[in-house]
Nucleic acid binder design. Structure first.
Length: 541
DNA sequence: TCCCGTTTAGA
DNA sequence: CTAAACGGG
């Protein structure tokens, strides 16, 4: 798979090498394009310059959340200071319209007299088009060589194909093929190898007439149109999700080496705890197999925001996991149904969905993977009200409402609740899954096109390897399994704080009325029948 | 990465 | 009586 090729061979050595950082690779450690750019700069004995171009128009077009934009800026600040220690400037600027970006980047390269550009590939359609344009322009000028490098996935799109050389569209054979790729073949490079850290620029670059002033450009405080609602929201989100590679490493460490707290309380400050180290299998990852579906305890990795923004690499996650096996005889087996196995398989899901977007781009252009399901009849009557109620967490189904309120409060949801809330929107309320996909992107801090689209198309039964249309979640059963203590619901739905016991999962209308909690928008069993009927005959009532 | 009604096995 | 097993959606 090489949509993007190096466009100019062996350009003359210029005065600098440029690494162009994007929203999905916000790190210094284990960053392939950065490492390659640095190696080239070292070889040519010229300085390395790094660049980030904010693109508000893209953020609007892609439904980026203010949380994600703020997270990007905070991480950029952290990166700027890490790079400054190596005398490497990070020049951050903002540009619209987005169509102007390719020529603008070329003009910067000209200004900096750079003849080589390195970047990690983004697989979304608009981003690929942008990069192709950059290549075309570079080719026309004939002085700049562009290198776009696979870095997002553990195993790059195109490397995992069926015998017929097609992309896998079912997860389990994909996984079977993915796992062996983790171990290096004979004489081959280790796919999990850590990219070398960038080398220092000579300190003199700070005095350079062109590059010196780049150190003085601060990362902007905000992007127009992506402000937090208020100070309170800003502080809450920033406490939940501290920026920087160190925070990401700590989050991984917390998951692999520390014990889970049994309570949801304090969950909005994940790093605040005393990390109780444990040498046994009582770690979060060790208990992941059984505990992962519990939402009333802090049992998951919570790495999704860091992975989505590339603050930590997926490779690093796998590497650190493999190192858990102290005796080399007992290697980590990623295919096992164990805590560690399931965790590695979650990273494989991330690769899977990214490969799908790269190989079948139409899924991300508003099309269902299963085309005949494009004709499903969605509710139009009262759907505006229902959609708003779903977003606000007042559907009258406690587990769904708790999840939706968690999304608003933290910019993050437990995956089990994502599936439950998504399935409820699509199958119970019968609202177009693209509406839900959009809202998740607008609200969550970990919004990633591939994973989000993959998850929604799974719930809507329209995707690759989807939930069969008749396998509709019963939200009340999901609630009892995921939140047996009821603590999660009580935490995020204060109206129900006094309700103890199983009634919290499905309060009677009388109790709901008394507590000022909404009654269910629809009857689950009727809605279920309706969904099955419509899915059976797409295009009909 | 299921739900549900029904049947069947076993205490 | 309860839990597992089963088949259809």
């Amino acid at each position: 798979m090489s949509l993007l090729k190096s466009c100019v061979k062996n350009p003359a050595v210029g005065d600098s090498v440029v690494y162009w950082m994007r929203m999905e690779d916000l790190r210094v450690h284990d960053n392939r394009a950065l490492a390659r750019a640095s190696a080239q700069a070292k070889k040519d004995n010229i300085p390395l310059i790094t660049l980030f171009v904010l693109s508000p128009q893209d953020y609007i077009a892609h439904d980026r959340s203010s949380r994600r934009i703020d997270f990007t800026l905070r991480n950029l600040r952290s990166i700027q200071s890490s790079l400054a220690k190596l005398h490497i400037p990070l020049y951050t600027t903002s540009l619209s319209p987005r169509t102007a970006i390719p020529s603008y980047v070329l003009s910067l390269l000209r200004e900096w007299n750079a003849t080589r550009l390195f970047a990690n590939t983004e697989y979304e359609v608009d981003e690929l088009r942008r990069d192709i344009k950059v290549c075309e322009l570079a080719q026309k000028e004939g002085v700049v060589a562009c290198s776009f490098i696979h870095d997002k996935c553990v195993i790059p799109p195109g490397d995992i194909l069926t015998k017929a050389e097609k992309g896998y569209t079912v997860y389990s054979p994909f996984l079977r093929s993915w796992i062996p790729h983790l171990t290096p073949g004979d004489g081959k490079e280790d796919p999990l190898a850590c990219a070398p850290p960038p080398a220092e620029n000579p300190a003199s670059v700070r005095e350079h007439p062109l590059y010196g002033k780049l150190f003085d450009t601060p990362v902007p405080d905000k992007v127009e149109g992506f402000a937090f609602l208020d100070k309170d929201e800003e502080e809450r989100i920033r406490t939940c999700w501290p920026a920087g590679e160190e925070a990401a490493q700590q989050m991984l460490d917390r998951f692999l080496h520390t014990m889970a707290r049994s309570s949801q309380m304090g969950a909005v400050d994940p790093l605040a705890e005393d990390p109780t180290r444990n040498s046994t299998k009582d770690t979060r990852v060790g208990k992941y197999k059984d505990a992962r579906d519990r939402v009333d305890a802090d049992t998951t990795s919570r790495l999704s925001p860091y992975l989505a923004a590339g603050v930590i690499s997926a490779r690093e996650c796998i590497r650190a996991t493999m190192e858990l096996s102290t005796n080399k005889k007992q290697k980590i087996d990623a295919s096992r149904d164990t805590g560690v196995g399931r965790w590695v398989q979650e990273i494989a899901w991330r690769d899977f969905y990214t490969h799908i977007v790269a190989l079948f781009p139409r899924v991300s252009m508003g099309r269902p993977f299963i085309e005949k399901l494009a004709d499903i009849k969605w509710e139009s009557e009262s759907s505006e009200d229902h959609l708003q109620a779903w977003k606000d967490g007042r559907t009258g189904v406690p587990i769904v409402d708790a999840g939706m309120r968690q999304a608003r409060a933290m910019g993050w949801m437990h995956n089990r609740v994502r599936m439950t809330a998504a399935m409820y929107l699509v199958k119970d309320l019968m609202i177009d899954w693209r509406q839900g996909e959009k809202y998740f992107m607008e609200t969550l801090i970990d919004g990633d096109l591939a994973s989000n689209n993959g998850g929604w198309q799974w719930s809507a039964s329209t995707g690759v390897d989807p939930a069969p249309y008749f396998r509709i979640f019963n939200p009340y059963i999901q609630s009892k399994k995921a939140d047996p203590s009821g603590e999660y619901i009580r935490y995020f739905v204060p109206e129900l704080r006094e309700v103890l016991g199983d009634e919290i999962h499905q309060p009677s209308p009388a109790l709901a009325d008394r507590l000022g909690y909404p009654r269910p928008l629809v009857d689950h069993f009727e809605a279920r029948e309706r969904a099955i009927r419509r899915y059976k005959n797409p295009g009909q009532e």
